[in-house]
């Protein structure tokens, strides 16, 4: 199983905070996971389209969409950060 977490505008637009799912067949990277989610859920596809600029964390470490995934990973997707 993997966990996919959404924050800020992406959480509000998708209406989801966290998904728990088996790592889908053929999905080996964050980019492929996003593609898979877009195919499987229209609301998520719309939320990603409305948030084209995104940041990624894998297991609480900043990563790129090219980062590889394995079972047990926690993936977080969010818009560019605005703290400080």
């Amino acid at each position: 199983m993997i966990q996919v977490r959404f924050f800020a505008a992406l959480r509000e637009r998708s209406g989801k905070e966290c998904l728990e799912m088996a790592l889908p067949d053929g999905v080996a990277t964050v980019a492929e996971l996003i593609g898979w989610l877009e195919q499987s859920d229209q609301t998520l596809a719309a939320a990603f389209a409305a948030t084209p600029c995104r940041m990624v964390a894998v297991n609480e470490m900043l990563a790129s969409e090219e980062a590889s995934l394995e079972d047990g990973d926690v993936v977080a997707l969010f818009p560019p950060v605005t703290g400080g």
Partner: peptide
Amino acid sequence: ILKTRAPFWKKELIDGSWHWVEA
């Protein structure tokens, strides 16, 4: 580095509605 990498997000209340702040 904090401003551009640390996972915080701001929302502003303007004219009674909340808006996410753009980076």
